[in-house]
Amino acid sequence: MSSETSTTHVEMEATAIGINFGSMLLTVDPGGRTEGHSHDSAEVWVTDSGAGYVELPDGRLEMRPGTPVEIPARAFHTVYCTSDEPMVFLALWWKRVKP
């Protein structure tokens, strides 16, 4: 699982009433992974199809359809697809914006 094969289909981000929020729909190909990274905002992910896991500094969390996964702010993470079909998941994030 060393190939970075992921696709971002839709990404939206906006700021309203002092909160920056956004969403992204992603696909990770079978045997593929995302590029490892971190960011300032927390995220919640929900898998639609396929299966895999996200590797975090404290271990890994399984990603299965319908099961939410929480990614803490500033936690380095990489997503791996372990199923024979692409893993599709929705990422949602938010953070307060300083005035």
Rank of each mutant, 00 (worst) to 15 (best):
A73M: 10
Y53E: 15
V10S: 05
I71F: 08
R96E: 14
T27E: 14
E70R: 12
M63T: 03
D58Q: 14
V28D: 05
D48F: 13
G22P: 01
W93A: 06
S6R: 00
M87S: 04
P86G: 04
D48Q: 03
T78E: 15
I17V: 02
G50Y: 08
L61K: 15
A91H: 02
E13K: 12
A91P: 05
S83Y: 13
L26G: 00
L56G: 03
V54N: 11
T27K: 02
S6T: 03
S2P: 12
V10W: 11
E70A: 08
M12T: 12
G36Q: 11
T5H: 07
E70V: 13
K98W: 03
R64W: 10
V46P: 10
A51I: 04
T27S: 14
A91C: 15
M1K: 00
E55V: 06
L56N: 04
T7K: 04
E70L: 09
R96S: 04
E13G: 05
G22T: 01
G22E: 00
S41D: 05
G22H: 01
S83F: 10
T7W: 04
E11K: 14
F89A: 08
A91G: 12
H77I: 09
A42W: 13
E43H: 09
T8Y: 01
H37W: 02
W93R: 06
L90N: 08
F76D: 15
T15H: 00
H39K: 02
F89W: 07
V69Y: 05
L25A: 10
D40T: 01
D40C: 05
M1T: 07
T15A: 07
A75S: 10
V46Y: 11
M12P: 00
L25D: 07
E11I: 09
I17A: 14
G22V: 00
S83V: 03
S23D: 02
E43S: 07
S83I: 10
L56S: 05
V97Q: 11
W45P: 12
S38C: 02
E85R: 13
L26N: 05
V46G: 02
A16F: 11
G66D: 15
P99L: 10
N20K: 14
V69S: 08
S38E: 00
T8V: 00
I71N: 12
H77C: 10
D48P: 01
I19A: 07
S83C: 12
P86H: 04
S6M: 01
L92W: 02
G50P: 07
A91K: 09
E43V: 02
L92H: 08
H9E: 03
D58V: 09
R96L: 12
M87N: 02
T47M: 10
M12L: 15
E43A: 12
P72V: 15
V10H: 12
E35K: 03
S83M: 03
P65K: 15
R33L: 00
M63F: 03
F76R: 14
A51Q: 09
Y80E: 13
